[in-house]
Amino acid sequence: MTEMLIKPAAVSDADRLTALIQDCSAYRGDYAPMIAGYRVTPEYLAEHEVHLAVRADDDHLLGFYALITDIADLDLMFVADAAQGLGVGRRLITHLLDRARALGVTGGIRVVSHPPAEAFYLRMGAERVGTFPARPPIGWDRPELRFAL
């Protein structure tokens, strides 16, 4: 893979972020309700701390994260299927933690995880702190984790 850059999202990135979410194979089958109809809007991008991982040579989207700073919550994190296993997720988490510190976030960052992603977050240094209860349309409990800052 060519060099990767992490950069702030622009409001014009809304459609390509939505497409990445909707194309994510981890949300097929039983997990489809988690993203059914979900859209990243320009307003969301204008209001939150969202960063993209892109290939440096052509700006191809590899993944992204969205941090809600006022509640210190990792709201969204997705890595494109074709970029899985290439270190994109690790780079995004490192950037997320550095960015949160730079913004003055203290006490840690909460992650309500997609169940199959829990092991990834634990490998990245998150600690399991509880379980987020099922709420429609999501019919199952999810791991709740925290990254210390």
Rank of each mutant, 00 (worst) to 15 (best):
M1G: 15
M1A: 14
M1S: 15
T2F: 05
M4A: 03
L5D: 13
P8R: 05
A10D: 13
V11M: 08
S12F: 00
D13A: 07
D13Q: 04
A14W: 06
A14N: 10
A14V: 12
I21P: 14
Y31A: 13
A32K: 13
P33W: 09
I35L: 07
I35S: 07
A36Q: 14
R39H: 14
V40A: 12
T41Y: 01
A46K: 14
A46H: 14
H48A: 13
H48N: 15
E49H: 15
H51M: 11
A66C: 15
A66S: 15
I71C: 13
A72P: 05
A72D: 10
D75C: 12
L76K: 08
F78E: 07
V79S: 04
A82Q: 10
Q84I: 07
Q84H: 12
G85L: 10
G85C: 03
V88I: 09
V88C: 00
G89E: 04
L103A: 12
G104I: 07
T106G: 11
E118I: 07
A119V: 15
F120C: 03
Y121N: 08
Y121R: 03
M124S: 09
G125P: 03
E127F: 01
R128A: 06
V129R: 03
T131D: 06
P136E: 02
P137T: 00
P137V: 00
W140S: 06
D141M: 00
E144Q: 12
L145I: 02
A148V: 13
L149P: 03
